[in-house]
Design a protein around this nucleic acid. Structure first.
Lengths: 104, 104
DNA sequence: CCAACATATCAATAGTTGTTCATATGTATG
DNA sequence: CATACATATGAACAACTATTGATATGTTGG
């Protein structure tokens, strides 16, 4: 059973909203950087060579869509992917891009 | 083997480009509409209540990213998803949205 | 070749969004 | 409590993008 009814216009909008958030290189880099282990905002900014402000802004968007989740630890806040769905999808898509094979 | 190295900045950009294209409700609606069977531009426009021009514009973007593919049949051109990867991913994500379950 | 239809392209615009800089909030330590 | 550190928020701007309306290209039939 791989087919599905065409999603409602509302569902489509919600789905698009998620895709849209993934559709920015900076945000994707942040997500991949947090994929293996939780990372502090400062670590993200330094490692990815981004301003702290920019990282915070993006993290807020990602948080809003429940794509990441942050845990405070003393002064720092460590962010990680919100759930396995998200990380699995990222891994899948990364593989997809690497493969670049056209079947059919 | 579900882990992967962090994609290069270039790969990330390419990946983001794909996500970005999926991140528009109108384009997603077009994609879902073409999921089960090839659809003509006019059919898409009429069924989804979009201007012919708009549909053509979006189809061009989707074509550029090899997300859809068009076959001319007399005067009409029928568009369908480019390959199984794309359709599978759409189906997966649609399910993901419907489920809305948080594990962990 | 001309008319009618189907799709594509062009130019212009309104709305959105990523980024920056400045500033605020929150947290630990002396 | 004051200072330093870590993160978040706000305002402003430049760049981009979806949409529209008009027009062009391509295709079929008489």
């Amino acid at each position: 059973m791989n087919k599905l009814a065409i999603p409602s216009q509302l569902d489509t909008t919600i789905l698009a909203e998620t895709f849209r958030l993934l559709g920015d290189p900076t945000r994707l880099r942040i997500l991949f950087f947090c994929l293996d282990e939780p990372r502090s905002v400062g670590d993200i900014a330094t490692s990815l060579d981004l301003s702290q402000s920019l990282v915070s802004h993006h993290l807020r968007l990602l948080r809003g869509a429940r794509l990441v989740r942050g845990n405070r630890q003393a002064k720092q806040i460590f962010y990680e992917l919100a759930d396995k769905h998200v990380s699995d999808m990222l891994v899948d898509m990364a593989h997809h891009v690497c493969e670049e094979g056209g079947e059919d």
